[in-house]
């Protein structure tokens, strides 16, 4: 690999710029963790001590805990569903050709391009026109529509990297189409499934623009709860929530790194 051009004055400039950008990137993440331990309601520098008040506040708030429960329940429903739909769909999209394939693919992936607000408002409008009580079902359906493209993208990228001759070899050796899928394709899709699960899970937990339309008081999810809290209160309780999410994301990164190397997973 060509690793020489980051030397000299030019190299130092590029490295410095990258360092500044990295600080810019990490600043809000590090800051919010620091802020969550603040003993004061408002930001003060240097910190006046160390307090767990806001963390206790977060974990004892029934609003946040209910929202967390809703969020995780929804993410735990949406993640396996998007795999169950996404794996066969990706296989069909990558391995076979049929009329209208490109159009179908465009439609399924369209929530990636169409702003979340438009998707959210459209789903809300349709579901309420159909006289449906939005509830958990509507929320999960909306999130599935939104998250499925992430799953299909990760899975398709994985599938495209698989040699179709390996499947032919299995057929040639006597395995039927289903056997081939379960014994040969699925095990090779492990990294794609993993990446898809993490992406879908994180996106479902984090999504605000669709959730704000499709969740009500009984199905309120964490981002919506946090938004409402920020509007009404001025204390670092949301920083405590953020810290919990950051810890979770560090655990996920570590997990991905251990299982498949996170650089690879992010490329999918």
């Amino acid at each position: 690999m060509f690793r020489r051009d980051l030397e000299g004055r030019f190299g130092i400039t590029v490295s410095l710029l990258a360092a500044v950008a990295t600080v810019f990137l990490l600043l809000p993440v590090l800051f919010v963790v620091l802020h969550s331990f603040s003993p004061t309601r408002y930001f003060q520098w240097p910190p006046q001590g160390f307090s767990l008040e806001w963390h206790l506040n977060f974990y004892s708030s029934s609003m946040f805990m209910d929202a967390a429960k809703n969020s995780f329940l929804m993410a735990l429903i949406v993640t396996p569903l998007s795999l169950v739909i996404g794996i066969p769909a990706s296989y069909a999209l990558v391995r076979s050709s049929f009329k209208g394939k490109a159009v179908i693919q465009q439609i399924i992936l369209s929530p990636l391009i169409i702003p979340g607000v438009v998707t959210g408002v459209s789903l809300l409008s349709l579901l309420s026109a159909a006289g449906m009580n939005i509830g958990l079902f509507g929320l999960c359906l909306g999130m599935l529509v939104f998250a499925l493209p992430f799953a299909i993208r990760a899975l398709s990228a994985n599938l495209l990297g698989l040699d179709p001759r390996i499947e032919e070899a299995a057929r040639n050796l006597g395995a039927g189409p289903f056997r081939t899928f379960f014994a040969i394709v699925l095990p090779q899709l492990k990294s794609g499934i993993l990446a898809a699960s993490v992406f879908v899970f994180v996106e479902a937990l984090d999504n605000f623009s669709i959730a704000v339309f499709l969740s009500n008081d009984s199905t309120k999810v964490l981002p919506v709860a946090a938004y409402q809290y920020i509007k009404d209160f001025d204390d670092p309780t949301v920083a405590a929530m953020a810290t919990a999410l950051i810890v979770m994301s560090i655990i996920l990164v570590a997990f991905l790194e251990k299982v498949m190397g996170f650089q690879k997973s992010l490329r999918l």
Binding site: R165, I166, E168, A169, A170, I184, Q188
Partner: peptide
């Protein structure tokens, strides 16, 4: 097969 297509 070309490139052998062994099950990885």
């Amino acid at each position: 097969f070309q490139n052998y297509a062994l099950f990885p």
